[in-house]
Design a protein around this nucleic acid. Sequence first.
DNA 1: ACAGTAATCCAAAACGTTTTGGAAGTCAAT
DNA 2: ATTGACTTCCAAAACGTTTTGGATTACTGT
Lengths: 338, 338
Amino acid sequence: MKITLKTISEESGLSITTVSRALAGYDDVNEETRQKIVSIAERLGYQPNLAARHLRSKHTQTVGMVIPLTSYFSDPFFMELLSGVGRQAAEYGYDLLLSAQQPGEDELNTYRRMVASSRIDGMVVARILKEDPRITFLKEARHPFIVFGRSNANDYPYIDVDGEAGMRAVVQHLTEMGHRRIALILSPRELAFTSARYAGYVQGLRAAGIEPEETYLAEGTLSADSGHAAALRLLDQTTPPTAIAACNDMMAIGAMQAVQSSGLEVGRDIAVTGFDDIPPSAHAHPPLTTVRQPTYLIGRQALDMLIQVIRQEPLDQSHVLLMPELVIRESSGTNRRR
Amino acid sequence: MKITLKTISEESGLSITTVSRALAGYDDVNEETRQKIVSIAERLGYQPNLAARHLRSKHTQTVGMVIPLTSYFSDPFFMELLSGVGRQAAEYGYDLLLSAQQPGEDELNTYRRMVASSRIDGMVVARILKEDPRITFLKEARHPFIVFGRSNANDYPYIDVDGEAGMRAVVQHLTEMGHRRIALILSPRELAFTSARYAGYVQGLRAAGIEPEETYLAEGTLSADSGHAAALRLLDQTTPPTAIAACNDMMAIGAMQAVQSSGLEVGRDIAVTGFDDIPPSAHAHPPLTTVRQPTYLIGRQALDMLIQVIRQEPLDQSHVLLMPELVIRESSGTNRRR
DNA sequence: ACAGTAATCCAAAACGTTTTGGAAGTCAAT
DNA sequence: ATTGACTTCCAAAACGTTTTGGATTACTGT
């Protein structure tokens, strides 16, 4: 049988109100009665019905995250973020509601459902577009949210890593290794972080006195397969690049496979670099030179910020920008070349 | 402002009852009125308040999973399972409530909270113990659940892989490669799958006429570090093993590092194998010979089964046992030895 | 003895939905 | 005109909480 406040009320001979207030710790109930109520509640194994509580009190101790089925699940980057968010949510006693988007459903719909159905107190949004309708929606709905990433309009709290600096460091490293023909495998242009990483690439080249060339640019979709295809296109020209920088690790891993299948050796004949430092990258063959985003920690900090937004506390810092770290491994070559 | 049934009721001049029934698709409302109601609902962007709905109707379209913080998050195996469950949940229109267990909190408490607070319709339980209090609890509470794994008492629906056959295949492979001194790094004894894998190990040895020896057994905690330590212990004896089988991939990866740091080469001087085939294993150095558990698919199928339990439909199969597949890579040696 | 205060309790409303058990109206058959 | 069968609608109850706005009692100082 279900144990409710009513059960305890009957058992104790006190009103439902008093039972509720006793358990909630209000000070207008006698310490002795509280003891009695608490002990009955424990004996019966009372657990409040959260649906009822939420209906009444308007907050749910739950934060939400939407997962577009196409890519995010099984994407190690996203999983790491999820871990961080989940970990920190537990710290605050919050649960995490994952709504994988229903197949074929408009993504924005999933957001609408989540927000308007009032099952969550706030949302974490990741991998945003330059013009992101989800953010527009959340802003309009005045629903608490936190973003991993920056877009064009930045009037919302976010946490991000400096992709420009990261990619600049990659290119600087490559030029120091003697490379001059450095190609870039771009992420989709509509993604918010693409322009920052591209800008860093250009800056890195110019700092070494190199003009970027159209023929050393290729576009991928973030997946390993797309990195593979892009690398093949880049290599298939009269003066192919001697280094390939990819905008994320998955594409870099695909690119390495492409390089190897062309009979070249990564790290000796050609350098390959990534961005993200997802766990597999350290164990790739050869280990991948990349830019570390502390994704797990970002998840945790994002949740910290979200809680502040939910509680309407002023944010310590509403725009957090982390400096990424260049991680040099073998894929970019162990010895100077050329 | 919040759009509720009342809003639509006032807007349309119809009762709340009729609005509710119209939107729910009952056939006791005129088609014309339904059109009107639906169009108003759409215009206003009505989204039902799920807390209220759940309070009244007793089911939540949500399944739950508890994640012990200590190990599971950031455990690739568990993440894969999560992906499968999440993916399939979306297929049925279910959401996924993740409750990471609070640090220091009794795990069973988290289950109690989840179940009794009536926020979920069913649970997925993974990595169970031989005697698992969570299962006892769920059975007693008569709350729908599905288990990945088998324990001693099997009177509940589960899906599992045949760990005995898997480990037998590993040992058979190793003996065929000429190994006679084959060590085993055990998972914790209280875990349900440990005994099956151990049994397979013994069977595999006996099939090749080898008696298992106490000195070739070590125990780990599933983590890479524990595998590392266990391997060092195994190697530090007068006649060390020539092959080390680990009960999961993480420990195998740790063991490989230990072997390498002892100046030996994995795959040539000594063979190492794992169990699970988590994604990093294919890219390990050298790539790890292991037993593939289709964890993602298991997650999906587990959810299929859970939905059936929730709907009180008879299960197609209440005990599913999958055959795992031996994946031979370089860590077990490419050429016959000895 | 009396007002004033503090301590302790509670009835009832509210949250937004679904469901129950009709009511009202229409129409056709008698 | 009455009956029965349909169709279409709705008032009210229920789900289990929290909160509001007192009510009751006991104690204090005068």
